Computed example of a mutant assay.
Amino acid sequence: MSEPGDLREAVLDDGREVVVKRGHAPGAAAAEAAGLRWLAAADAVRVPAVHHHDRDRLVIDRVPAGRPSPPAAERFGRGLARLHAAGAPAFGAPPPDGPVQAWIGRAPMANVTGDDWAAWYAEHRVLPYVRLAVDAGTFGPAEAAVFERACARLPASDEPPARLHGDLWNGNVLWDGREAWLIDPAAHGGHRETDLAMLHLFGCPHLDRVVAAYDEAAPLAAGRRDRIGAHQLFPLLVHTVLFGQSYAGQALAAARTLG
């Protein structure tokens, strides 16, 4: 969710090409650096190395440009399964040295922990954004009630907390011609199906191969497709808060899939 003015390319003294990213708020660059390092520590999917960060700026490797391919998509699926399996201390856990009050794009995101996925997801990944959308006039009381009913019907889960990228839309998956790279995380502990649901929501090259390879490496519980709407509530509500009415209908439709 970066804007063009936030980024510039540079070359280090040793010849390495990097990207310099300006944080949109104090501490945002440090939060992103913590997320990138946490994802990299899993040694599962390629992540740009962090060369420097301070209060306002982040300097990371520039990802070489390439095209996605079916073999790369399958490697990405298997790598994403390993990333999720690296785990997190709890649902909502921030990366080590990451802030509790973090961001997804330019929207606030609270990394408050919980042990029960459905209760945590409702309290910290759905209802805060419903309240923000109500405050902005995008939703009224009737629409808010739809989301409250959906939260009461979230599927129970005994999945352990996964190490999530957290903002896994197509624009944050780059391809170098051989491998996929992950950028711009909103990393936290969560349900692994939430990352996958975001890939479904915004598209991903060779998505069927990505998911098939993931499912082969780390089989998903039966009925996953029926739960996609529940896991898409989070990104759809974030986009409603950031971009307004254009996503409000999709968010309501996802909520109504839960009854």
Rank of each mutant, 00 (worst) to 15 (best):
G249K: 13
V238K: 01
D13H: 06
E17P: 12
V112K: 04
S157L: 01
V20A: 11
R82P: 07
G229D: 01
H239S: 08
S246M: 11
A213R: 14
H188S: 08
E9V: 11
E3N: 10
G249L: 12
G171S: 09
L207M: 01
E143S: 13
P128A: 06
A119I: 08
R8N: 12
E9Q: 10
W181N: 13
G98L: 05
G189R: 00
L258I: 04
D184M: 06
A222M: 02
C151G: 06
V146R: 10
E193A: 05
P235M: 07
A136N: 08
A65L: 02
H53P: 04
A152F: 03
G114F: 10
A102Q: 04
D56E: 14
L258N: 07
A248N: 07
R149H: 04
A197H: 14
G98E: 04
D61H: 08
W181H: 15
V238N: 00
W120P: 02
S246H: 09
V63L: 05
V241I: 09
V130C: 13
H206W: 07
R125F: 09
G189N: 00
A88R: 00
A255M: 13
D226N: 12
G171M: 12
R62L: 13
M109G: 14
R224H: 14
W117S: 01
G223W: 12
Q232G: 10
D208T: 02
G177W: 06
D208M: 00
S69F: 11
D226W: 15
E148Y: 04
D184Y: 06
S2V: 13
E9R: 13
A253P: 10
H53I: 02
G27H: 03
L164C: 02
G244P: 09
L36P: 01
A222C: 03
M198K: 10
F234M: 11
W181F: 08
D43Q: 03
Y129R: 03
V238L: 01
H51Q: 02
R37G: 12
F234A: 10
E3L: 07
A187R: 05
W169I: 10
